[in-house]
Simulated scan of single mutants.
Amino acid sequence: EAELLDLKANPNKPATGTVVEAFLDKGRGYVSTILVQAGTLKVGDYVLAGPRHGKIKAMQDERGHDVQEAGPSTPVSILGLDGAPQAGDKFNVFQDEREAKSIAAKRTQLQREQSVRTQKTLSLDEIGRRIALGDFKELNLILKGDVDGSVEALTDSFQKLSTEEIQVNIIHKAVGAITESDVLLATASDAIIIGFNVRPQGNARVVADREEVDIRTYSIIYDAINDLKDAMEGMLSPELKEEITGNAEVRQTFKISKIGTIAGCMVTDGKIFRNGGVRLIRDGVVVYTGELVALKRFKDDVKEVAKGYECGMQIKNYNDLQEGDVLESFHEVEVKKTLK
């Protein structure tokens, strides 16, 4: 209440307020939408918002009309900051430009130190978990967008894609064009750069091509999420699934010296393949699992025998074959894993 009375008594005091949104406009540069909460903001004021600072070059109201000043409870868009502050950052007007620059530099340094501190280091439990999983993978991303809201939405969506086998790490996110420093950071951290409604700036594309850094640009959030999901599914190791190809019944056995036992069989269903596995079933019980050494039709070696045909079969390192046994042919196929 005292603060409200003070405002009414002195409306020209330096303005303070909150950043609502910030984005990169193609023609005008960094535009920040702010809500003045105290005092009066004027064109020409030197503003500090989070780690960003600058002199207000132009100010517009909610209808896009130019205004020279904005009082308490007034939302305006301002031009002139050297970057895009985050939504929720407080802003203050400074008389001394050097003081504002000094505070901005300190805040940037603190943010950098904090991001280094909060990077997840490997604990003993984490190492144990990765060893247990066997094949743990990480996907590092650098995220740049045109609007702070889009960057936050993409960050949340990407982090929700993390699984036990693949961890998604957003190592840097910001509003603005993709710069050379983003490419160098991606090189150092083996990251992929994702740009949402932004493109590489200056020498960034040349450096990315030289360093072989993957830059993906999107204009639809769902396209970015789906592409990342597909890439992660490609990183997952495929599951091996057994597929039974056919069955054959042993009609007669032949013992040949120095070779072993040959089974004369009739294929009852499916196909028998020479390069597949084979399972010996006797009275409904699996007796032996191995592989075929030979598959013949009369005297000729063949790759496969179809249903209704007779063939000769020899199992590697196994000779205890009896009439009436069933030989089941199978092979393993790779099944692509999908994210749950």
Rank of each mutant, 00 (worst) to 15 (best):
residue 1 E to T: 07
residue 1 E to Y: 11
residue 2 A to W: 10
residue 8 K to W: 10
residue 8 K to D: 07
residue 11 P to D: 14
residue 11 P to K: 13
residue 15 A to E: 04
residue 15 A to T: 01
residue 28 R to T: 04
residue 35 L to M: 11
residue 40 T to M: 09
residue 42 K to N: 13
residue 47 V to T: 12
residue 48 L to P: 04
residue 57 K to N: 05
residue 57 K to D: 07
residue 60 Q to L: 07
residue 61 D to L: 08
residue 61 D to K: 09
residue 63 R to P: 09
residue 65 H to K: 14
residue 65 H to M: 11
residue 66 D to P: 04
residue 69 E to C: 05
residue 71 G to H: 00
residue 73 S to K: 04
residue 74 T to Q: 14
residue 75 P to Q: 08
residue 77 S to T: 14
residue 77 S to F: 02
residue 78 I to M: 10
residue 82 D to H: 05
residue 86 Q to F: 05
residue 87 A to E: 06
residue 89 D to N: 14
residue 96 D to C: 07
residue 98 R to G: 14
residue 113 E to L: 10
residue 115 S to I: 09
residue 115 S to N: 11
residue 117 R to C: 03
residue 119 Q to E: 10
residue 122 L to M: 15
residue 125 D to P: 06
residue 127 I to Y: 07
residue 135 D to L: 05
residue 136 F to A: 12
residue 137 K to E: 13
residue 138 E to W: 02
residue 140 N to M: 06
residue 140 N to S: 13
residue 142 I to R: 02
residue 145 G to K: 04
residue 145 G to W: 05
residue 148 D to V: 11
residue 150 S to H: 01
residue 155 T to W: 08
residue 157 S to I: 09
residue 159 Q to I: 07
residue 159 Q to R: 13
residue 162 S to M: 03
residue 165 E to S: 12
residue 165 E to K: 15
residue 171 I to H: 09
residue 184 L to G: 02
residue 188 A to G: 05
residue 191 A to D: 05
residue 191 A to Q: 06
residue 192 I to F: 03
residue 198 V to H: 11
residue 199 R to C: 06
residue 199 R to D: 09
residue 204 A to C: 12
residue 207 V to I: 15
residue 214 D to V: 14
residue 219 S to R: 13
residue 220 I to W: 08
residue 223 D to P: 03
residue 230 D to L: 14
residue 233 E to G: 05
residue 240 L to K: 11
residue 245 T to E: 03
residue 247 N to I: 01
residue 248 A to F: 00
residue 249 E to P: 02
residue 250 V to H: 00
residue 254 F to Y: 15
residue 259 I to D: 06
residue 259 I to F: 12
residue 259 I to W: 04
residue 261 T to N: 11
residue 262 I to T: 07
residue 267 V to R: 00
residue 269 D to K: 01
residue 275 N to E: 15
residue 276 G to F: 01
residue 279 R to N: 02
residue 288 Y to P: 11
residue 294 A to V: 09
residue 297 R to Y: 07
residue 299 K to N: 03
residue 304 E to Y: 08
residue 305 V to W: 00
residue 308 G to L: 00
residue 310 E to A: 02
residue 314 Q to R: 15
residue 315 I to C: 00
residue 315 I to P: 01
residue 321 L to T: 04
residue 322 Q to P: 02
residue 331 H to Q: 12
residue 333 V to F: 03
residue 333 V to Q: 12
residue 337 K to S: 07
